[in-house]
Write a protein that binds this DNA or RNA. Structure first.
Lengths: 203, 203, 203, 203
DNA sequence: CATGAATGAGTGTTCATTCAT
DNA sequence: GATGAATGAACACTCATTCAT
């Protein structure tokens, strides 16, 4: 079926990436073979190589998409919120993606990407992009809050941003290991921490 | 009929595990071949198989040792501290291991173990043991602090324990991706958070 | 029902064969993929298969054309010369094709055809046709010369024809390996050999 | 069977190279698959890769050995001859290898190496070594003969050496295409040419 | 006729594991 | 126990060929 529309090409790409994502989520990408992706996608080896020139490229694309989707979700959540942003809202926005099961699968792959980033520069770039941007957003919101006297000026905005990102990352891990991990309990604690910081007047 | 002393056996095991740890830290589990371990250890394939019946067993042993060492370090830190423990001291104890470069290598492997735990039940068990125990210690310390009125009673001890563990895990990740990450800045922020919680009287 | 003129068909064939010849000369038959020919020709896979039913057929056609062209060049050279032919002129005619760079490319392909002929009967037939015909021409010229007493009668015409063909083939090889090989030096030596034979009166 | 003698290692290498040579001679090295070599040698893929790190390395080794053997045969023939060498003897020495059927197989592979040398620098080096050395030997013999007044001084030694090498190469080709090619007829003609040159006193 | 996406058998290569010495 | 050559299933990837549009 040649002379095919760009939509068709894009659909095939999706078909491959969706199949790969399912495989990666189940077995991890090191244990996923091209045969797995072939079976799962219903395509042939050649068809896949018409869209990606190597297995690694599929892995990269999945990692990239994952972080792009997460960043998009966050940006969306920020846009919907009323200015000025407060940290409570921001925290909720961060955790919003935990609703769907599909996102849960995606986050499992994300954890593997985190590990892969330690050995694969390509992946480290992707991870950094996905982590640094939210951190910068957070740091800005923190600075703004300090200027409005809603947060002690003594707090280092970057340090707190890092810590809040860590709070998110740590939960991702804990929930990945145990899907029953109680997100509401966790978010309630996050709220307490934020409130405590908000009311804190230095030592 | 073993002709060799148990000490010799143990020394061989160490030789293998140390070589494997170096390989894993550099290339990751999946990219490390048995040939790599053979070269790095200076032993033969057969010699290795006399101590481990499969590559996976080496991986498991490394993961196990890693968490055992970390738990031991933590226990040691707790023992040395003067009762009653406060959260500031506890946080410092958690982060104590970040001093040495060797520990840095070990933590890189640890991150991969975290990812591996998502697909390998054996590894999940190891990870859970390594994470749950500290969390329980933390929760107990928090409860104690609440009883001494050093922390608001409204805080959920388990939720806060989880969050503090997350604060640790997130930093491990961030530092693994960027070794220049400033630990003192981070610890200062952790201290602020703990102080804020200590002084917080609910809303 | 062909809608296209025979000229168009022939033009397409040329387009394919020219592209293929360029590819073969650069990478050899075996390393040239159909994709290479597609890129080089600017045509599509389907278009090529409308004119050739397999890659081998293109190879055959190239080999055939090459030898046809060489034979034609030789015939032309013979026609132009004034009878009776002498061996000096004939040798020059043989080596005439070494002038152009295009012919140089063609000869590189020719060497591969020589090798291919050892395994591919189709190709062997082509090579034989291309080699036997000149050899017969040479043998006839030699016989004629002997009858005119310009060459010792003791010489075996077929043996000498073979040897003169070999002199040509060997030079093709040597020049293919080293394009700087001095053709004038070589031709001068050939002339000396012919003169020596001409003047030779047996032992 | 580890801790094996160097002889054993060498025997395995031979086993592989002999099998490969048989395959190459039958199908050519482009059409010979590793599976072919595996079947023919009776070894496993892994065993082969213990001795050669890629298929290309086997091809190179075969080409190298072929030329080494040919050079050795020539050197041997030269040593056996009584000084001073004359061209008749030298020509016979060159053609001595045409006796055995095994050498015939080897020469078929050699023709393929000649073609391969046009695209593969590694192979070109091997071919050049195999061709230049005999050419130099020939040129020296020619110069010596000229000094002894057995050959006209007007002849260019290098040109004649090239031509004699070509006479050899051309015969290799012709015999490879047609095993029935008469070597005695050919050698007789070569002798006539040499005699004619010997008696030639310039134009 | 032209297109080029799709096919899938086949390729060279790797690597955890075994076992005769 | 120690050795390391041997195994062979599995892997990622290629490419001549087909055929629906």
């Amino acid at each position: 079926m040649p002379k095919v529309s760009p939509e068709h090409t894009e659909a095939r790409r999706r078909q491959i990436l969706d199949a790969a994502a399912r495989c990666f989520s189940q077995r991890g990408f090191h244990r996923t073979t091209l045969k797995d992706i072939i079976s799962e996608s219903g395509l042939s080896a050649g068809a896949i190589y018409n869209h990606f020139s190597a297995k690694d490229e599929i892995v990269d694309a999945i990692a990239q998409e994952r972080h792009a989707r997460e960043t998009a979700l966050l940006a969306e959540a920020l846009d919907e919120s009323h200015k000025p942003l407060d940290l409570h809202e921001l925290a909720r926005a961060f955790f919003a993606s935990f609703a769907s099961a599909e996102q849960m699968e995606s986050r499992r792959v994300g954890v593997e990407v985190w590990a892969e980033a330690l050995r694969n520069p390509e992946m480290l770039t992707i991870v950094r992009r996905g982590v640094d941007e939210p951190r910068r957003v957070l740091a800005r919101v923190i600075t703004d809050s300090q200027e409005r006297n809603e947060l002690p000026a003594a707090i280092d905005p970057d340090g707190l941003a890092r810590l809040m990102v860590a709070i998110f990352q740590g939960f991702v891990l804990q929930q990945a290991w145990d899907p029953d991990t109680d997100i509401e309990q966790y978010l309630a604690t996050v709220d307490v921490v934020i409130s405590a910081l908000t009311n804190y007047e230095g030592r």
